[in-house]
Amino acid sequence: MAPSLREGARVLVTSFGRKRVGDIIVFPLPHYPETQTIKRIISMDETGLVVEGDNLTRSTDSRHYGTISKDVVIGKVQFQYYPKFRWYI
C-alpha cells in the first residue's frame, strides 16, 4: 500500500460505516483466509468490490484474485495513528 501506508503503520479499523470507493479496507486474503490484507476499493457493484493496492506494480489484488464479496470485509480504515497521525490516507 506504499506510498499511502508504510510497513508497520498502525491504523484504526472499524466494522461500521458505509464503504465507499477510495476507502481502505481490511479483509481475509482470498485463498489464504488466515491472512488479513489491506487494500483500497477501486470500484464496487452488486457483485462485489474491486480492490487494488496503491503500489500497483507490487500489489497482488483484484487484478489477480478478482472481486471480493462485501460480506467478508472486516472493516474500513478510519485513520492512521502511527508513525504519524493522519486523517486522510
Binding site: L5, I38, R58
Partner: peptide, 15 residues
C-alpha cells in the same frame, strides 16, 4: 484488539 494486515506483494511473497 490489534491485528496485523498484510499489504505486501504476493503471498507467498514473490521475489
Amino acid at each position: 484488539q490489534t491485528r496485523t494486515a498484510e499489504a505486501h506483494c504476493d503471498i507467498p511473497c514473490g521475489v
